[in-house]
């Protein structure tokens, strides 16, 4: 009897509970939907354990070596990498947009080779403010390292010195040279030119610099510039091309004007290497970008795990000549493991 009596009450309770539940569900559904969608969006946006690597551009041996180094280090540190860059080294806007996108996507770290030392300061600072550890690779920004910002740079003083010593050796301390491809958008290039000039004037005062030309990231333009230079200065003994594009342009110009063996060419940054074997190109000062990429990921991994990291690392460049081209050390830097099933 009591049970039957309670049945009615239970039904009423059920109905009132159902009613209450209905309104509660209705009231909660809207914020819950928003929260859920926000959560899903957040989950999608996060890229924990992924390091974004944005070089100046991709599809160039200089930067693909850094990519290979970063991949190797990431595999050891159980991390992965996102690799992309503008299609041109002077496309600053695209690089800024890419950096901003990476920051918003919540990557665990950022490795950046800036296309311009000033314009990239703001996005990098924004990333640092969001707690993203950042490594600037190759050439510095116009801001000091520290905190979560580290620099892994090519030792441009040594690079300039290597080139100067090589010129001095080639010309036996006497002659006329020109410097082409000076690109003020890359601080490292400016530094290597200044170092080169300083060492040259100190060690080989008998060598004069006939002309210095600014450069761009355009090989035909560099070729044109060198051809004009050669037409003006008939007595040039050597050309120092301080970027990879300038090296290619100068090489093409010398080849075009059949002066490859009369004017010695010293290049910078690995891109054009093969003519060293034939002697058409004397030497190239190369950056160990593989090591830079490897160290950058290691450094970020340490930062992620809360370890102290150095603010600045300088990586020594190498001078590649016909005599050391086949050496294991040079081959390590130049030859990349691009096997299919890595």
């Amino acid at each position: 009897m009591i049970v039957r009596s309670n049945k009615g009450s239970a039904v009423r309770q059920f109905c009132s509970t159902k009613l209450r539940l209905y309104w509660i569900c209705l009231a909660l559904s809207v914020p819950l939907t928003f929260m859920l969608s926000g959560l899903l969006a957040g989950c999608k946006a996060r890229h924990a354990g992924v390091i974004a690597f944005i070089p100046r551009t991709t599809g160039m041996s200089l930067w693909e070596a850094a990519h290979a180094g970063a991949e190797a280090a990431a595999a050891s540190a159980h991390l992965s990498t996102y690799w992309n860059a503008p299609t041109r080294e002077d496309d600053i806007n695209s690089q800024i947009a890419l950096v901003n996108r990476v920051i918003d996507a919540g990557y665990s770290g950022l490795i950046l080779s800036p296309d311009q030392p000033l314009a990239l300061i703001t996005p990098v600072r924004r990333g640092l403010a969001k707690g993203i550890p950042t490594v600037i690779l190759g050439s510095p920004l116009a801001m000091p390292p520290g905190g979560k910002l580290s620099y892994i740079l090519n030792d441009e003083n040594e690079a300039g010195s290597l080139a100067a010593m090589r010129i001095g050796e080639l010309l036996h301390g006497k002659g006329t040279i020109a410097i082409v491809g000076i690109n003020f958008d890359i601080i490292g290039v400016v530094d290597r030119v200044r170092s080169f000039e300083a060492v040259l004037s100190r060690r080989f005062p008998g060598i004069t610099i006939a002309e210095k030309r600014t450069g761009s990231f355009n090989i035909p333009y560099e070729q044109q510039a060198t051809e004009e230079l050669l037409m003006v200065h008939h007595n040039l003994d050597a050309i120092v091309a301080v970027t990879a594009d300038a090296t290619r342009g100068s090489y093409a110009a010398l080849d075009e004007l059949h002066r490859l063996h009369r004017v010695r060419l010293i290049g910078f940054d690995q891109d054009l290497i093969q003519p060293i074997e034939t002697g058409d190109l004397d030497s190239v000062v190369i950056e160990d970008t593989y090591d830079m990429g490897y160290r950058a990921v290691e450094l970020l991994s340490d930062q992620i795990h809360g370890k102290a990291v150095p603010a600045l690392i300088k990586v020594s460049p190498r001078l590649v000549t016909k005599s050391n081209l086949a050496s294991p050390e040079i081959q390590r830097i130049l030859a990349l493991d691009s096997e299919w099933n890595r």
């Binding site: 160039m60 090989i219 093409a252 990349l336 096997e339």
Partner: peptide
Amino acid sequence: SGLKSKTDLPYFGSGSRPSTTNLPL
């Protein structure tokens, strides 16, 4: 599947420049 680039110069990008370029201007 066993190809490695170490036997040849590596290519970077499908349009990577060959080692000898001479563009007539």
